[in-house]
Amino acid sequence: MLEIRNLHARIVDDGTEIIRGLNLTVKAGEVAAIMGPNGSGKSTLSYILAGREDYEVTEGDILYNGQSILEMDPAERATSGIFLAFQYPMEIPGVATMEFLKVAMNEQRKARGEEPLKIPEFLKRVKEAAASLSMDMAMLKRPLNVGFSGGEKKRAEILQMKLLEPKLCVLDETDSGLDIDALKIVSDGVNALRAPDRAFLVITHYQRLLEHIVPDSVHVLYRGQVIKSGDKSLALDLEANGYAGVIGEAA
């Protein structure tokens, strides 16, 4: 589903190279975990996948279902099925969460040539999804992410993911700022979405999240490259011994 080939990318403003020859393949139905120390390029990778303009790809390619996505803008990538759950979701003052969900769902439907959802059907879907994440409907009347707690923001991200039904879900440090109960709810939400035609890229610092969202593969990112790949036991190994050993091996 996703194939990243020898990707090099830098920050447009100052030319700093962050991704330096990254290779990664994720198959449909797979949950791939990306781990790595601070500053290794994990969040940058998620931004580049979603099409953020602050980064420029200088070499290599990103293939999604066999097609390069480098020329697509963020909205086009989103409607083609790529979803990014943000580490720090943005506040959108004055725009009710409900309104935002409706616009997003209908814009995606429009891009696929479908009719906008009828209001009762829209409400039904939102209610079901919110209930499964233990979210209060009253919260959805508030402006998106404005005054939300850390946990509420992350839940709102998963709610959007559920409703937009993407094919490639990128989760950027979704566990940061969550207490154990919230972590459980969010992980259950993600697990419920696991499907043979859907892939996940789970970016995290800690093994903790991977106890709840059990990955099929684990990749260690360091200085803009994948320096080691393995199965879920690799995450346990990192937890026990830290990154130093893996980095030493690669060097």
């Binding site: 963020p74 943000f86 943005m90 959108i92 935002f100 616009v103 997003a104």
Partner: peptide, 16 residues
């Protein structure tokens, strides 16, 4: 850019 990117990432075109 952060706000615009966030909204577009949900499939909403730039002008919208």
């Amino acid at each position: 850019e952060d706000q615009k990117f966030y909204v577009m990432q949900r499939g909403i075109p730039e002008e919208e």
